[in-house]
Design a protein around this nucleic acid. Structure first.
Lengths: 175, 175
DNA sequence: CAGATAATTTAGCCTTGGCTACATGCATGT
DNA sequence: ACATGCATGTAGCCAAGGCTAAATTATCTG
């Protein structure tokens, strides 16, 4: 009843198995698996982004203020303190932070290690973006999202390029 | 009852308002707002990542196979077809795709536009990563996640650098 | 010390994005 | 033409990550 059954093929192709070419599988099947792997990696990174943001921020707050209150975390992240509370509970469950009722948030060893890794990546990305000519504010904002998706190889390349661009004496050969 | 109340301050500082310095606000308040803005942008990008991935992939499938079946989308993304079904329903609700029962997925104008923007960013990021020496597979995988967080300024810088690195005649001046 | 202010915690709600299990529809093969 | 297989759709579950509202606890102030 919705569409009858004939003339709406201006974009909604009928689901016949192979309308275009007979040689679809050999070129497509491995590519599908490869794509799936890449998307899985991105999905995985998305899941850890929040944890990394939290521990990095908590580490920053402790370094700056001597403590990390959930209200400060909430203000820095721009979310409600309830969201922080629940997320911090998950982080505690996952062994990244420790909390005691009505006390400031503390990082575990694992949390500190993750925070340092995250900060290092963040700095590499941010410095790199500035080095290639992105303004500081945009660099900081983009780094905030990009850092979680940069692999070790990419980070190395970023560091190489940053060094090369910062030291103006080298042009086409860095190391 | 849980911890008593006194001696666990090896990391869980008491929640006194200002234990470190009296000049906390002027240096911290604007920074908190700035950080919140950056995190909000990253959060926003995270929300649109999936939509962009879907429309870009659907566009690719249509270009390659002449149609985009949800089962193909599911295989490419590495998720179940039910997840695809539900996500595509949301995309339809948001005006990015159109679907009819048992028909292939079609992109709306808005969906096609978003797909093209996403693909362009994807290519810029991937080409750039390869240009700075990241291997192809890692570049593709990292680009998958990073593309969604690259602002226009960063993309321009990427293009500039890619051109500079690809065309070896220019060293310190691109355009 | 009592009240006010601020922070934390709890309770409950929503959307997104993932899943399994099952039901239905389409399309081809014999 | 009908069975069989594959694709799609439905129902229901879960966790994450967001929210408001209300209750509880700390801390500061008067």
């Amino acid at each position: 009843m919705h569409t009858g059954d004939a003339d709406d093929n201006d974009g909604a192709a009928r689901l016949s198995p192979r309308p275009a070419s007979g040689a679809a599988e050999p070129g497509q099947a491995p590519q599908l698996a490869t794509m799936a792997r890449r998307f899985a990696r991105a999905r995985d990174a998305r899941q850890t982004e929040i944890a990394e943001d939290y521990v990095e921020l908590i580490d920053d707050l402790i370094a700056r203020d001597g403590r990390a209150r959930s209200v400060d975390v909430a203000r820095a992240l721009g979310v409600s303190h309830v969201t922080v509370f629940k997320t911090v509970s998950r982080l505690q469950r996952d062994g990244l932070v420790t909390t005691a009722p009505y006390r400031s948030i503390a990082l575990t060893e694992a949390g500190r290690a993750l925070a340092q890794r995250a900060r290092r990546r963040h700095q590499i990305v941010a410095r790199f973006l500035r080095a290639i000519g992105v303004d500081a504010e945009t660099a900081a904002a983009d780094a905030e999202g990009m850092e979680h998706h940069a692999s070790a190889a990419t980070l190395s390349a970023f560091e190489r390029m940053t060094a090369r661009l910062t030291d103006r004496s080298t042009c086409e050969d860095g190391d």
